Computed example of a mutant assay.
Amino acid sequence: MTERRRAVFAGRRVITNATLLACVLLIVAGCASQSPESGRIQQGPSSYTVKGQTYRVRSDATGFRQTGEASWYGPGFDGRRTASGQIYDMHKLTAAHKTLPLGSRVRVTNLSNDRHVDVLINDRGPFHGNRVIDLSYAAAQRLGMRRRGRARVRISVLGANRADTDHTKPRATSNADNYLQAGAFDRRSHAVRQRRRIRSLGIDAVRIRRGTGPRALYLVQVGPFADTSSRRRVRQRLSTRDITAVPLDG
């Protein structure tokens, strides 16, 4: 077998059920014609089947509450299309749920530390184990469950259960929306070097964003943070390595 074929087969093996489901839902709903950058939510079918089990999407999620185990998904899915048609951005506050209408806004509370975060349901899953919701990286960070990977949570639907426009930046519930900006560079290679320096300190949540304007710079940002004290500790840690970081309100 050639190296190219080996690479193709290896790539196929790592495709997850969530990714396959997203593709199926988009085909059934005929969503491919709409640009995911528009941020609009595609509802998809009222029911679907995964691993022989059929899931029926709730027509009305008003008053919905659920308790169970949460997990999170991140870099391996970043930039891929979700079941709603939106592009998954692990730094936005979103989540996957099996039966809530796509576009639902829910509050997820970590029962072990009482932290909470408001997220947009824009994907389907999780379909393994007894987990009830798959959170984005940013949401997991907010709840203080990123390192452990799982947490027992309570899910409560907020307000209207549908969304027509881009709601991937839900209302902030605390100062946890804040980032630290640790540099602005003309060249992406310099921003990558700065990110590498920060990660060498054991700080994983570092992103590079392109600024706007005629002379757009590459911005190195650390976060989001669960609270202002966490942000302050990281800022002090960066300063010990002569890295200047400025708080940004999300």
Rank of each mutant, 00 (worst) to 15 (best):
L143Y: 12
A138Y: 09
T165K: 01
A96D: 10
R231T: 00
N110G: 04
S189K: 15
Y88I: 05
A226Q: 08
G223F: 08
A70R: 01
N113W: 02
P214W: 10
R232T: 15
G159E: 15
V108D: 11
M90Y: 01
F64S: 07
A29L: 05
H167A: 08
P214H: 08
I121L: 08
A160I: 08
L201F: 01
R146Q: 12
A61P: 14
D186H: 12
H167K: 09
L93R: 06
P101R: 04
I155C: 09
S104R: 12
L158D: 00
A163P: 02
D118S: 04
D242G: 09
I243A: 07
F225S: 03
G149I: 10
R131N: 11
S239P: 03
L248P: 01
G125K: 13
D204Q: 12
N175D: 14
R233H: 13
G144I: 05
G85F: 06
N110L: 07
A151H: 03
Q53A: 05
N110M: 07
V24R: 05
V119L: 13
D164R: 12
L93M: 07
D114M: 14
V132I: 13
W72T: 09
Y55R: 05
D134M: 05
G144T: 05
I121D: 06
M1Q: 07
T244P: 00
A61Y: 03
I121P: 02
L111M: 04
Y137G: 10
I121K: 08
L26H: 12
F64I: 04
F77L: 15
G129C: 04
R142F: 08
A226V: 08
I198S: 10
S47Y: 02
L20S: 10
N122P: 00
G11H: 02
S33K: 01
Q141F: 03
G63N: 06
V234R: 10
I27S: 07
S38Q: 12
F127V: 10
R196L: 06
G223Y: 07
V206D: 09
D114R: 15
T99D: 12
Q66K: 07
T165D: 01
G144S: 02
A29R: 07
R150D: 02
T54V: 09
V106I: 05
R199Q: 15
A32F: 14
R235V: 00
L20N: 11
L26D: 13
S46I: 03
Y137S: 14
G159W: 02
P247L: 10
T165I: 00
D89N: 14
T212G: 03
P170E: 06
D249G: 09
T16R: 14
D227P: 11
F185C: 10
S38V: 06
Q236P: 01
P126C: 01
